[in-house]
Design a protein around this nucleic acid. Structure first.
Lengths: 247, 247
DNA sequence: GAGTGGTCTAGACCACAAT
DNA sequence: TTGTGGTCTAGACCACTCG
């Protein structure tokens, strides 16, 4: 059963994509759409909220909502596994474990994974491919309590996140990502097929379960050109003028 | 006048920061907090929604909300100008225009700025500093209709976004950002004080007004080490299992 | 001043989690 | 079974935009 507000959001999304409401134009008012869809204003606002968080529409008090874009910004605001993300873009994800070893957590790792110092962790080096081409090298550290499930996965596992859910009921739910750029090291260069010292996009991330328990922390390095991260955002309620008198 | 739901969100934010609700613990239920704050459940949910979008708490139907982090994720989900962002981190922003010239828009630029081909645009090359150290080189293209206001700004303008608002009423409201990594070119190397070919984080962005009209499109290159972008996100309503039967 | 979105209420029912 | 969050309703008032 799909929720009513989701249906309405999808209808509006399509109408925007089809050009019924071109970029820059105003949408019908809340009360108008609530009437035509036979739904209360609250439900309609919920649908609008979804579209707003996708960056499709913008709003200001007193004025009608405005179309900002025709396609939802994907990728980031919604956490996606590499495999899901690849398939959403119509590309075939692949992967291969290069090495896997148990060891002790460093102090920093223990802190990030909320473990006691010297707790056991599992280090995995994994290359990920898109349509057969290597695009991403992952250095992942799994918390010890998740290590068994990870080790049982096949080396060429296509979707780690999906498999961990199916095999161990592990749901990776929240994530924190830090992005910067680094020069490719020897291993990076060899596995990704680039020159040593060439630029890579680095994403350091920590993933947690629904109740906030960290499962893994990872250093992911992307070959440029193959992958671009996109974020769409807005000044939410407060226009610039309100943020501070002099800032 | 601050809204009730904002006050409650702020109270909860502080309680979380102070450790009243440690990471991983469950928060009181909606109805409970609604009672103690003397407010309806809807208002309380609005406050919770804010905290959720800041990545502080997570929720699943049927279970109590859970604390995921103690500090709100800044920077990205909320659009911020360089100057605002710098001040929020307690650092002093600076800037200097290196060159500024009018010209015709390329086809790609015209499309991105929603201009007619051959419309006039303003190219600005600007270096940005943090505590005096250059960290960012901006190559910005402004739509012709905004060019006059931009040219009237002082060369060492500290906050372009703020000044454009004050001088011309221009409010940059929405933005789309594409992130990848590139090697530093000759100009990048000279202005940022790095070696040619060393890795830079590139952010290509387009900024628009409240009604979706593009003001500028820019190629920004960040010196690594000085700046890290952070994104915190969640699988929203649908847990992994729901996304697709086989994906 | 009319219309719009933002806020808030007080109720209801449902799907799901915990026990 | 009980309690929780997710959905939805039908109203109300306010702050704001716009003609």
């Amino acid at each position: 059963m799909t929720r009513r507000h989701q249906q309405i959001a999808e209808e509006l999304r399509q109408a925007i994509a089809e050009g019924t409401y071109p970029v820059g134009s105003a949408l019908p008012s809340e009360s108008e759409l609530a009437l035509t869809h036979g739904v209360s204003r609250g439900t309609l606002r919920q649908a609008f909220g979804t579209l707003q968080s996708e960056g499709l529409i913008g709003s200001r008090q007193g004025a009608r909502r405005v179309v900002l874009a025709t396609t939802p910004s994907q990728s980031f605001t919604e956490l996606r596994s590499f495999a899901q993300w690849a398939r959403a873009g119509g590309r075939a994800p692949g992967g291969l474990v290069l090495s896997s070893a148990r060891g002790k957590a460093t102090e920093a790792q223990a802190a990030q994974l909320q473990l006691a110092p010297d707790d056991e962790v599992l280090h995995v080096l994994r290359v990920r491919t898109l349509d057969g081409e290597p695009v991403l090298l992952e250095r992942t550290v799994y918390a010890g309590w998740a290590a068994d499930a990870v080790e049982r996965l096949p080396d060429d596992c296509e979707s780690v996140t999906q498999s961990l859910y199916e095999a161990a009921g592990l749901v990776m739910c929240h994530g924190e990502h830090h992005l910067d750029a680094v020069a490719a090291g020897t291993t990076d260069a060899r596995e990704l097929g680039v020159r040593r010292g060439s630029p890579l996009l680095r994403v350091r991330r920590t993933t947690t379960t629904a109740d906030g328990r960290p499962v893994e922390t990872s250093d992911d390095r992307y070959k440029p050109g193959s992958v671009v991260f996109t974020v769409r955002n807005s000044v939410q309620a407060n226009p610039l003028v309100r943020t501070s008198p002099t800032a």
